[in-house]
Amino acid sequence: MSKGVQIALGAGVCALLLGWYANTVLDEGATLTYYQTLEEFLAAPESAGSRPARVHGFVATGSIDRDVGAKVVRFRVQSQPPHAGVRPGGGLSVEYASLEVPDMFKDGAEVVIEGRLAHTGDARVFHATNLLAKCPSKFEAKLEDRASL
């Protein structure tokens, strides 16, 4: 057997082992999350209910409610930035199981919520275990605003 074949065989066996191990890790489910925009998420509710999801949206203006007693933060997300003129009431209610929110989290912020959808009666509430927020990209926008004064 030539050296090249030996190396290829060795690498193949290692890759298979690694792949098998990766597969068992991933099968436990907790580490795989599906990244979707809010629209995609709402369009596929049956699959959305059963598995952990990572949903991208924007915080609806005035919807943030810190419940210090219950140690949760409730808010709504919508699929467009608030100033884009989306009618209020649309979107999805979120309950985030912590009082610790990212610094960028505020009205209109672009967020990614991680967790699962829960149905209580008619109401659908997304129970988020993790919350990521991005600064609205005001830096670029503001320069143009000011430069055109």
Binding site: L18, Y21, A22, V25, L26, A30, T31, L32, T33, Y34, Y35, Q36, E40, R54
Partner: peptide, 14 residues
Amino acid sequence: GSQITVGPQFFNTM
């Protein structure tokens, strides 16, 4: 067609 991310747990366990 859908973006699937793996969390830190994947990296730690692997």
